[in-house]
Amino acid sequence: KPRVVLAPEEKEALKRAYQQKPYPSPKTIEDLATQLNLKTSTVINWFHNYRSRIRR
């Protein structure tokens, strides 16, 4: 699969959402995906990867 490249404003929106709730509910994930015009799997993976990046 080709890698999804996020626009800077999409990254900022995801980071703001992460600061509010690092483990978002499925509803929140769905809303974010719709709002940013991304797949839910992309949003889920971003949160998973961002949490692991923060832990390093």
Rank of each mutant, 00 (worst) to 15 (best):
K1T: 03
K1V: 05
K1C: 04
K1W: 01
P2C: 12
P2T: 15
P2K: 13
P2L: 13
P2E: 15
P2G: 13
R3H: 06
R3C: 04
R3F: 14
R3A: 04
V4I: 10
V4S: 11
V4T: 05
V4G: 13
V4E: 05
V4A: 04
V5P: 03
V5G: 04
V5N: 10
V5W: 04
V5T: 10
L6A: 06
L6G: 07
L6V: 05
L6M: 13
L6K: 08
L6F: 03
L6T: 09
L6H: 02
A7F: 05
A7K: 15
A7V: 01
A7S: 11
A7Q: 15
P8T: 12
P8Q: 09
P8G: 09
P8C: 01
E9M: 12
E9W: 01
E9A: 12
E9H: 15
E9R: 07
E9C: 00
E9T: 12
E9G: 07
E10G: 02
E10M: 15
E10C: 01
E10N: 14
E10T: 14
K11I: 13
K11L: 15
K11Q: 12
K11A: 12
E12W: 03
E12K: 05
E12C: 08
E12N: 02
E12L: 05
E12Q: 12
A13E: 12
A13R: 09
A13W: 04
A13D: 03
A13C: 11
L14K: 09
L14Q: 02
L14A: 05
L14D: 02
K15C: 09
K15H: 13
K15R: 08
K15I: 15
K15W: 05
K15P: 03
R16E: 09
R16L: 09
R16V: 09
R16W: 00
R16P: 05
R16F: 05
R16D: 05
R16I: 13
A17E: 04
A17Q: 11
A17F: 05
A17R: 02
A17H: 06
A17G: 07
A17P: 08
Y18N: 02
Y18F: 12
Y18D: 11
Y18G: 08
Y18K: 10
Y18A: 08
Q19R: 07
Q19A: 15
Q19G: 11
Q19E: 14
Q20C: 08
Q20H: 09
Q20W: 11
Q20N: 02
Q20Y: 08
Q20T: 15
Q20D: 14
Q20G: 07
Q20L: 09
Q20M: 15
K21T: 14
K21N: 13
K21A: 12
P22S: 07
P22C: 11
P22T: 04
P22Y: 03
P22W: 07
P22I: 08
P22Q: 11
Y23S: 11
Y23C: 13
Y23G: 04
Y23A: 07
Y23I: 07
Y23N: 08
Y23H: 06
P24L: 08
P24I: 00
P24A: 03
P24T: 06
P24Q: 01
P24D: 02
P24E: 05
S25M: 15
S25D: 15
S25L: 13
S25K: 09
P26N: 11
P26W: 06
P26S: 11
P26T: 14
P26Q: 14
P26L: 10
K27E: 08
K27W: 05
K27H: 02
K27M: 07
K27D: 05
K27F: 04
K27G: 06
T28V: 12
T28L: 10
T28C: 10
T28H: 08
I29R: 05
I29A: 01
I29G: 07
I29H: 10
I29Q: 14
I29V: 13
E30V: 10
E30I: 11
E30K: 13
E30Q: 12
E30R: 10
D31G: 11
D31A: 07
D31V: 02
L32F: 02
L32Q: 02
L32E: 00
L32N: 04
L32D: 02
L32A: 03
L32S: 02
L32P: 02
A33T: 08
A33W: 14
A33S: 08
A33Q: 01
A33V: 13
A33R: 13
A33D: 00
T34P: 00
T34S: 12
T34L: 09
T34Y: 05
T34K: 13
T34I: 04
T34W: 06
Q35S: 10
Q35P: 02
Q35K: 13
Q35A: 12
Q35W: 11
Q35F: 03
Q35L: 09
Q35R: 13
Q35T: 03
L36V: 10
L36E: 01
L36G: 01
L36T: 01
L36M: 15
L36Q: 08
L36F: 05
L36D: 01
N37C: 07
N37L: 00
N37M: 06
N37V: 02
N37Q: 13
N37Y: 10
N37P: 01
L38F: 03
L38W: 06
L38C: 07
L38K: 11
L38A: 10
L38Y: 04
L38S: 08
K39V: 08
K39S: 13
K39D: 13
K39W: 13
K39N: 08
K39I: 09
K39Q: 07
K39Y: 10
K39A: 12
K39E: 13
T40N: 05
T40K: 12
T40P: 10
T40Y: 08
T40R: 08
T40M: 15
T40D: 03
T40E: 11
T40A: 13
T40C: 12
T40Q: 08
S41M: 14
S41P: 03
S41R: 13
S41C: 06
S41W: 04
S41A: 11
S41I: 03
T42I: 01
T42C: 10
T42A: 14
T42E: 09
T42M: 14
T42W: 06
V43Y: 13
V43Q: 00
V43G: 00
V43E: 00
V43H: 00
V43R: 01
V43L: 04
I44A: 04
I44E: 13
I44D: 14
I44C: 14
I44Q: 03
I44F: 12
N45H: 06
N45F: 00
N45Y: 00
N45I: 03
N45W: 07
N45T: 05
N45R: 06
N45G: 07
W46S: 00
W46E: 00
W46Q: 00
W46P: 00
W46A: 00
W46N: 00
W46D: 00
F47D: 02
F47N: 08
F47P: 00
F47T: 00
F47R: 00
F47A: 04
F47K: 01
F47G: 03
H48R: 13
H48K: 14
H48I: 10
H48P: 01
H48A: 09
H48C: 03
H48V: 09
H48W: 02
N49G: 04
N49P: 00
N49M: 07
N49E: 12
N49Y: 14
N49D: 05
N49F: 03
N49V: 02
Y50N: 01
Y50E: 14
Y50H: 10
Y50M: 14
Y50T: 13
Y50L: 14
Y50V: 13
R51P: 00
R51W: 15
R51Q: 05
R51I: 11
R51G: 07
S52V: 08
S52F: 04
S52G: 07
S52M: 13
R53Q: 12
R53I: 06
R53F: 04
R53H: 07
R53K: 03
I54T: 03
I54W: 03
R55E: 13
R55G: 07
R55D: 06
R55H: 12
R56I: 06
R56L: 08
R56V: 01
R56K: 13
R56D: 06
R56W: 01
